[in-house]
Design a protein around this nucleic acid. Structure first.
Lengths: 158, 158
DNA sequence: TATTGTTATACTCTATAACTATA
DNA sequence: TATAGTTATAGAGTATAACAATA
């Protein structure tokens, strides 16, 4: 998506810079994720399952703010690669509890590694104190708008 | 697009916060743009034409980093609403020079207004000095990566 | 009848490549 | 033949709604 803020010559506002750099960062992260054969949504789901193991697909879909039908394809892709597994609940066979496998946890460690590389690549021009400052400012904004920590808001409906 | 950075519980890195807040900001800006009947890409194009009047479609497409074929539909939409116009070059009738009309300039003033509202809504929890600090940090990162000032990078190929 | 997960369908956005008109 | 713009086609990603299985 291409979005403009103000004048091409005027100093852009913080919100426009946020949108532009966010798009840039997402694009770059997507490239790194591809080296693991994963897409950003797949990684988001894998991490969500690891954070809340044993939840139903509907519960995880709710946490991530996406329709359950979308989750199905994402879980399929991760399950095909044995990174997660669905376990039927014997007490209520409608429910599919989601778990990360050992392979999935190993992949999550690789994900953490590319996340650090990504962070260094994006914020390379800032020293440690500046990066902490940036993190603090961004975290304040995110909290102010009620964003779930660690969850990408995607383009969920309001 | 949904992207995860690190753990849902670990403090996310600055790059992840950037992606998450950028997506959030884009979504919110898109809503404001809709009140003008415009999409973010249309606004980006309108602003680009205003910044470089009389350029060919190919030149503007190059500036924005999109294929010329994509520009056609965007220009059509803006031209249908008389916000921009194509003027054929009599010396080389293949060229369509792009100009913003008076209506287009009036719309750009409305765009500037919603841009300010948007900036206030997104950064409302920061005081003026913090917002300036944030802008400075983000501008450094953007410059470090060679982003064209005032132009949203979209998802252009590398 | 209500709920979980799944599938089917349709729609939006975009890129690639073919096409036209001018040169 | 080469270039500017346009149109056609196809693919990715996603939401909505219909459906099947289970309660």
């Amino acid at each position: 998506m291409t979005e403009q803020g103000r004048g091409l010559e005027d100093p852009p506002g913080a919100a426009f810079l946020l949108a532009a750099l966010g798009s840039f960062a997402t694009c770059r992260f997507s490239e790194r994720a591809a080296t693991l054969g994963l897409t950003p949504p797949q990684i988001g789901l894998l991490r969500a399952i690891a954070a809340t193991p044993g939840q139903s697909q509907q519960a995880v879909a709710e946490l991530l703010g996406m329709p359950p039908s979308r989750l199905v394809g994402l879980v399929d892709a991760l399950a095909d690669r044995s990174l997660v597994e669905r376990r039927r609940n014997p007490d209520d066979r409608r429910l599919h509890a989601l778990y990360v496998t050992d392979d999935g946890h190993a992949t999550l460690r690789q994900v953490a590694a590319i996340g650090r590389e990504h962070d260094d690549a994006v914020c390379g021009s800032l020293d440690a104190s500046e990066r902490a400052q940036l993190r603090a400012l961004l975290a304040r904004i995110a909290e102010d708008h009620g964003l779930t920590p660690g969850v990408h808001p995607g383009y969920r409906r309001l």
